[in-house]
Design a protein around this nucleic acid. Structure first.
Ligand SMILES: [Mn+2]
Ligand SMILES: [Mn+2]
Ligand SMILES: [Zn+2]
Ligand SMILES: [Zn+2]
Lengths: 146, 146
DNA sequence: TATTAAATAGGATTAATACGTATTTGTCAA
DNA sequence: TTGACAAATACGTATTAATCCTATTTAATA
């Protein structure tokens, strides 16, 4: 019994072709797709799958801990299949999210004042700016940010 | 000449009653409002102001550096008038964002590999979980997250 | 194989944001 | 102080994301 089947059983979720398809689309991906993106990706091989189902499935997966919802800046909700502890760089131009790791950052200590006040389930360093592809375009086209 | 007037002049922006109203609404706020929230807040004293103008104004303010856009998890775009270096806790239940500071975190070192690859304009520790108000409700109503 | 609750598809709705444009208005130079 | 003009606004429309509704299908279980 594979990981996916095990997880579904444990949470009392039915194993449907739709859920399997979404799981397969996410597995091994290092991207941070939106529901719409996953839906488009599945359409060729699974034309009958609905966007609503993809969206519900992703939210369900996030709820049971198969994936995470990640931080964006007002754009469509993004999901992250990478459950390792890691950090993010967010490109303000193309909205791509890049993972990075750093041993030093693993030991970030959260102030007691904060841990007392909140129940913390997620912790991550969020960087933003312009990715390599975008910073060049930017210099030509747009005015600088400040 | 006040800070707002100075900033607008420097960036070649006209000083309009709408922009002044939005600026006043943000100033001194420690919240992280959406465009809609600011619009609702202004309606009583400025009934003719349009949501479109509020939204455009906020985006303009973010562009010239008066405010920032902050990370959410798929909810409407949120703005942050607090330009001090600080960090965030995001409540997964009520979506409120809380500021916190920490001298230790000021010196977070970003790996060279990352600074080489990207132009970084923002850096922040992003925590998520449940705020004090929400974690109690949660115990009663909803099933645990995992 | 029959039962049943869960899940899906797809249409409708709501909400957030952006766009198009006629009109208004702040700015600046005469 | 005024007039010209580009910038900004209001508001209607369009687009997009997300959710809701419900008839139908289907996975799980006995
Ligand atoms: Mn990631
Ligand atoms: Mn803040
Ligand atoms: Zn980019
Ligand atoms: Zn809360």
């Amino acid at each position: 019994m594979d990981r996916f089947t095990r997880l579904c059983k444990a949470k009392g979720l039915k194993i449907t072709p739709q859920r399997m398809a979404v799981y397969e689309a996410l597995k091994n991906s290092k991207e941070h797709p939106s529901a719409d993106r996953i839906h488009k990706q599945l359409m060729p091989t699974f034309p009958s799958i609905s966007l609503d189902t993809v969206n519900r499935t992703l939210i369900t997966f996030a709820r049971i801990g198969i994936i995470n919802v990640v931080e964006g800046q007002g754009d469509p909700r993004r999901f992250d299949p990478n459950r390792e502890d890691h950090h993010h760089f967010y490109c303000l131009s193309c909205t791509k999210i890049f993972d990075f790791h750093d041993p030093d950052l693993e030991q970030i200590r959260i102030p007691d004042q904060v841990t007392r006040m909140f129940t913390i389930t997620g912790k991550r360093l969020c960087l933003s700016g312009y990715c390599n592809e975008c910073r060049h375009q930017k210099a030509e086209t747009a005015a600088p940010a400040n």
